[in-house]
């Protein structure tokens, strides 16, 4: 009895020690991570609202008299404004294209039986191997001959293609989880296949559509390589490639203005990351190929 008691106690004690060690390690890890990941973002935001002099002074917290929103006036610059418009058009175009194609193809893979279906689906995965730089070199001359260089359409096509393997697989797997009976009951009630798809299936794919939209957004909004090569004209290019050109140019801008532009580019991803992270994670779960 007493042996068992002392054994139990010693186990409990050591458990308590180990538990404390674990807690300390976990908290320390969390702090380190927050600093590592958060500091560059914080520094960007902090310097986006500083005056030029404030930026030079440094200091972890901006001095009150050095705080200003005037850097955001950079958006009224016609070049920067044009980048923003181009980025928005291309991103919206890619998101819509990806949603439409992934819905139709995902539905087809989920609901129709056809020969070589699995082989085709696996072939789609090769899309993960599409490297923007490898593709954009030959695409440059092809687009040039087709007149798609510097066109929104050309960039939207290229970016949609590299979003496909993920979005179609996600939609396929997601639609498989929707019971076919809901759709069948619409057919029984007289709905055509298309009507039932629109009325019954599409509304139920909302989580997958959100995940697909965010991933397509991330690809289109952040793309540098395709935009840099396929949109050589400064008026046609999107924000990432434009910002890079500004950085290397003789443009008279301070770091504060670059931070302000960076912050504007970061805000949409930040909002999505905060509010829609569960959808993103869901997507990654299915992406776990």
């Amino acid at each position: 009895m007493s042996d068992a008691d002392s054994l139990g106690r010693s186990v409990r004690l050591s458990f308590r020690h180990r538990n404390r060690l674990y807690r300390v390690g976990l908290s320390a890890s969390a702090v380190v991570l927050v600093v590592l990941l958060g500091f560059p973002l914080y520094w960007m935001a902090a310097n986006a609202v500083r005056t030029r002099l404030g930026v030079q002074d440094g200091g972890l917290l901006p001095a009150p008299d050095a705080v200003t929103l005037e850097q955001f006036a950079v958006i009224t610059d016609p070049t920067v404004g044009q980048y923003l418009i181009n980025s928005t058009i291309v991103t919206v175009g890619v998101v819509l294209t990806v949603l439409a194609i992934s819905l139709v193809s995902g539905y087809g893979l989920a609901r129709f039986e056809f020969p070589h279906k699995i082989a085709v689906a696996r072939f789609l995965l090769l899309g993960y191997m599409f490297s923007p730089i490898v593709l954009s070199i030959p695409l440059y001359l092809i687009w040039d001959r087709l007149g798609l260089l510097n066109s929104y359409l050309g960039l939207i096509l290229a970016l949609s293609a590299i979003s496909m393997p993920f979005s179609v697989w996600l939609m396929w797997k997601y639609i498989q989880t929707i019971p076919e009976s809901a759709e069948a009951s619409a057919w029984v009630a007289g709905a055509s296949r298309w009507r039932a798809f629109v009325d019954i299936v599409i509304p139920q794919t909302k989580p997958a559509m959100i995940a697909n939209a965010i991933f397509a957004f991330a690809i289109a909004w952040g793309d540098f390589t395709f935009a840099y090569v396929l949109m050589p004209n400064n008026d046609a290019t999107t924000f990432p490639a434009g910002l890079f050109r500004l950085l290397g140019s003789q443009w008279d801008a301070s770091w504060a203005e670059f931070m302000a532009m960076s912050l504007m580019l970061t805000l949409p991803p930040l909002v999505f990351a905060f509010f829609l992270q569960s959808y993103l994670l869901q997507g990654f779960k299915i992406r776990a190929l």
């Binding site: 958060g38 990432p240 580019l265 991803p269 990351a273 905060f274 992270q277």
Partner: peptide
């Protein structure tokens, strides 16, 4: 923060 660093443009 992790999701943001994933979604934020490389530039």
């Amino acid at each position: 923060l992790v999701f943001t660093s994933y979604l934020v443009p490389t530039i």
